[in-house]
Amino acid sequence: MMNSENWIYCPVCKNKTRLQIREDTELKNFPLYCPKCKQETLINVYKLNISVIKEPDAQTQSR
């Protein structure tokens, strides 16, 4: 069985990152860094499906 490899693309700017994944790659809460737009995004990867984790924005505490 031949494992296919795919590049991970930045979900923000859609450019290629420095990482490749295979069919059997599993990532959970992985901080993906894009060298082009310098953004870090949390992703999950399972069977070549990449999903972006949306973090709630930090709320300031009011007194």
Rank of each mutant, 00 (worst) to 15 (best):
1 M>Y: 08
2 M>D: 10
3 N>L: 09
3 N>T: 08
4 S>H: 09
4 S>I: 15
5 E>H: 13
6 N>K: 13
6 N>M: 12
6 N>C: 10
6 N>S: 13
8 I>R: 00
8 I>W: 00
8 I>P: 05
8 I>Y: 01
8 I>Q: 02
9 Y>A: 04
10 C>V: 06
11 P>Q: 06
11 P>D: 11
11 P>L: 05
12 V>G: 00
12 V>I: 14
12 V>M: 00
12 V>E: 01
14 K>A: 11
14 K>Q: 15
14 K>F: 10
14 K>S: 14
15 N>A: 06
15 N>K: 15
15 N>S: 13
15 N>Q: 15
15 N>I: 02
16 K>S: 13
17 T>A: 05
17 T>I: 05
18 R>H: 08
21 I>Q: 02
21 I>F: 01
21 I>N: 00
21 I>S: 00
22 R>A: 15
23 E>F: 12
23 E>K: 09
24 D>F: 07
26 E>K: 15
26 E>F: 14
27 L>V: 06
27 L>W: 09
28 K>L: 04
29 N>G: 03
29 N>Q: 11
29 N>K: 08
33 Y>H: 15
33 Y>N: 13
33 Y>P: 05
33 Y>A: 11
33 Y>Q: 11
34 C>V: 00
34 C>P: 03
35 P>F: 10
36 K>Y: 08
36 K>L: 09
37 C>V: 05
37 C>A: 05
38 K>H: 11
38 K>Q: 14
38 K>V: 03
38 K>S: 09
38 K>M: 06
38 K>C: 08
39 Q>V: 07
39 Q>G: 00
39 Q>I: 07
39 Q>D: 05
40 E>W: 00
40 E>D: 07
40 E>Q: 14
40 E>Y: 01
41 T>E: 05
41 T>R: 02
42 L>A: 02
45 V>N: 04
45 V>R: 04
45 V>W: 01
46 Y>E: 11
48 L>N: 15
48 L>K: 11
48 L>V: 04
49 N>V: 13
49 N>H: 14
50 I>R: 05
50 I>D: 04
51 S>E: 14
51 S>P: 01
51 S>W: 01
51 S>N: 12
51 S>K: 10
52 V>I: 14
54 K>E: 10
55 E>S: 13
56 P>F: 00
56 P>Y: 00
57 D>N: 09
57 D>C: 04
59 Q>D: 11
59 Q>L: 12
59 Q>C: 03
59 Q>S: 12
60 T>A: 02
60 T>C: 03
61 Q>F: 13
61 Q>M: 11
62 S>Q: 11
62 S>G: 08
62 S>Y: 12
63 R>V: 14
63 R>A: 15
63 R>W: 12
63 R>K: 15
63 R>H: 15
